[in-house]
């Protein structure tokens, strides 16, 4: 029997029971790792969508994704809220308008089943009774975050769904045309969104009516975005983390007593090296060798 025949024979030999078991287990573990990694990769990609607006009172995105059970009770409440139901002349319910909130479906390219809204299509109307938040069974919509601590009453003005941002090049108010649609649409008109009047030097006799958003008041409801008259809204709501900058701790408002307290009794540190061991004025008075001839 030559070498080749021997090899063929060894392939044909039935596997021993222990070897069969070992190979089977290895295969199962390998498949489990394969499946697990593919699955994680997909889920990790799917959760990375940062460009979406959550209902009022939503926890921060990472907590929201693990806490929301995707039951849609907020969507139920939003659809059947006061003022959204259509009645006929006899007072009989005939239907509802489309709700603000909806659950992400396959094709939305958003984390599946979680509630969100698209402000340009259907903004949050900031109901006084906030029907969506008490409806949430899981606490993903945190009722305490929209409850006034003193009066113990729901207060939709405490919601922070996002922040309106103005793109001034496409805002016709910046061209000098008269438009204050967003300002008029804002439920917190004059507080969350105010008009900054400036002189129009081009005409010399008109004013610019420039919309300015105040991030400490704006709830991100999106009524301004819905109202914006240009083709693609020049004022639009972004998630707050995306729309806001952060100063960090190294700048202090010296004129603000409260802010000043952050640094306590900080003192400046002088580092002395070869360059700074003499004062600049001494260097000027004694240039050292430059004037010698």
């Amino acid at each position: 029997m030559n070498h080749k025949q021997e090899k063929v024979k060894s392939y044909r030999q039935p596997l021993s029971k222990s070897r069969r078991g070992f190979l089977g287990t290895t295969r199962n573990i390998g498949l489990a790792i394969l499946g697990g990694l593919t699955w994680s990769a997909y889920v990790d990609e799917a959760k990375a969508n940062k460009l979406l607006l959550r209902p009022p009172g939503a926890l921060k995105e990472s907590d929201f994704l693990k806490t929301c059970i995707k039951c849609g009770l907020c969507v139920d409440a939003c659809r059947n809220r006061n003022g959204n139901i259509i009645f006929d002349d006899n007072g009989k319910r005939v239907g509802t308008k489309d709700p603000t909130l909806r659950l992400a479906v396959p094709g939305d390219n958003k984390p599946l089943g979680n509630p969100f809204f698209i402000a340009r299509e259907n903004p949050c109307f900031m109901c006084d009774d906030i029907p969506c938040v008490p409806a949430c069974p899981s606490g993903a919509l945190d009722i305490l975050s929209v409850t006034n601590k003193k009066t113990k009453k729901l207060d939709i003005n405490m919601a922070r769904m996002g922040l309106a941002v103005v793109h001034k090049e496409s805002c016709i108010a910046y061209w000098g045309l008269q438009c204050d649609a967003c300002y008029r649409a804002c439920p917190l008109m004059g507080k969350a969104l105010s008009i900054n009047m400036q002189m129009n030097k081009r005409t010399g006799k008109h004013a610019f009516l420039l919309p300015v958003v105040h991030s400490d008041i704006c709830t991100g409801c999106g009524l301004c975005e819905k109202a914006c008259i240009v083709e693609k809204a020049a004022i639009f709501v972004l998630p707050r983390e995306l729309a806001m900058g952060k100063v960090g701790t190294h700048y202090v408002k010296g004129w603000d007593k409260k802010d000043q307290q952050r640094v306590g009794v900080a003192q400046s540190i002088h580092t002395i090296d070869k360059r700074s061991e003499k004062k600049a004025i001494d260097k000027l008075n004694n240039p050292g060798g430059l004037l010698d001839d």
Partner: peptide, 17 residues
């Protein structure tokens, strides 16, 4: 596996798919 992924990624793995 769904529980392992849920643990490491901090979300409900099966509910996503």
């Amino acid at each position: 596996i769904s529980l392992i992924i849920s643990f490491f990624l901090g979300l409900t793995a099966f509910e996503f798919v």
